[in-house]
Design a protein around this nucleic acid. Structure first.
Lengths: 189, 189
DNA sequence: ATTTAGGTGTACCGATCTGTTCAGTTACAT
DNA sequence: ATGTAACTGAACAGATCGGTACACCTAAAT
């Protein structure tokens, strides 16, 4: 009756996969780190890949919810919300366990675009893009789709920079660039 | 005497690692795909990790040389060169075997920042950044370091978008954004 | 009290992993 | 022709991989 073990497994596996990577994490490691028996794991998920997909689905939900809710909480006018994207990004980067974007990493480990993990990772980005686009529309951008795509490029670039550590303040540089782009797309007066 | 086998091994291994990933590629696969015996491999490189590092060094050299030479060939004024970055990016994306940036993928598979592969990947990006910065200086940017970092963020974002396929024209969107940023940093008249 | 569903623990399977060993081959320099 | 250095091929070692089998445990519903 209780499907709680399943959720617990997904949550705890997420943490390990996020920290160590997908191929580098074996099922025995998951047993050790989650405290859940292998038998139970394979009762809930037929294969490791199935578990990974469930983890990615869960990550998509929680991350997107967190990000967009955080954006709404500030209740700013749409134009400022577009900028605030990069403030929330900074919060994320400063979290102690930050290790980059799980979906970028998933698509790096499962390179075949036909692989479900790859496809699902793209889908996550498309969902974010469409959220950005609707913000850009509300903000009155002349070309909302283009602006949204550009802000997303800045966001992804900042994530990579934060993960790899080649920029001292990626969210700051991205935010500054975003404000120039926003001003160009949405003249202030 | 001939160290040609070693180079051949590095070159051919690069292709396999780039296509399939580091952890997903076993030494036996490399034997099959390179036609070089395992004995020889382990004579030239003590461990798989050593081979990976050599591959990354080789990739850094060839990619950076290719990119920057391509940029020089056009001999444009510095300001236009900054924009042309994104034209060369498009060329790369359109190559048939394109699978994203090897260093982003390396840092995704070797997440510990202390891991040599991770460190070397960051270094590659820093070298590119410093090339961008010197271009931005020559172009007379008011804040060349900031502009260079922002263009690099756009570049990395575009690479991720191209690899994951969530944007129909990442190099185009990035180029357009870059031109706005350049105009803001280097007033045209 | 007993059934039933979900979970545990451990041993195990065959395949694959990185890395080694070793006898034989090729090619070139003297 | 003989020595030498690089390379091959195949077998092998020990560990780990994803996944299975099976006997047992627990708790709640009947």
């Amino acid at each position: 009756m209780r499907p709680s073990k399943r959720d617990e497994l997904v949550r705890k596996s997420l943490a390990v996969f996020y920290r160590d990577g997908f191929h580098a994490t074996g099922m025995d490691t998951l047993v050790a780190e989650t405290g859940i028996s292998k038998t139970t794991m394979f009762k809930h998920f037929r294969t490791k890949d199935d578990l990974i997909l469930a983890v990615l689905r869960y990550r998509d939900e929680t991350f997107r919810n967190w990000f967009l809710r955080r954006l709404d909480e500030r209740d700013l006018p749409p134009r400022q919300k577009l900028l605030a994207i990069f403030d929330i990004l900074r919060e994320w980067f400063e979290e102690s366990g930050f290790r980059g974007c799980m979906f970028i990493k998933a698509s790096a480990e499962f390179q075949d675009p036909a692989h479900p993990a790859h496809a699902q990772s793209s889908e996550h980005k498309r969902l974010l893009l469409s959220a950005f686009r609707s913000l850009a529309e509300k903000a009155g951008a002349s070309r909302p789709d283009l602006l949204a795509r550009q802000l997303l490029l800045l966001k992804e670039g900042a994530i990579v920079a934060a993960q790899m550590g080649f920029d001292p303040d990626p969210s700051g540089a991205a935010r500054d660039a975003a404000s120039v782009l926003i001003e160009a797309h949405i003249p202030n007066t």
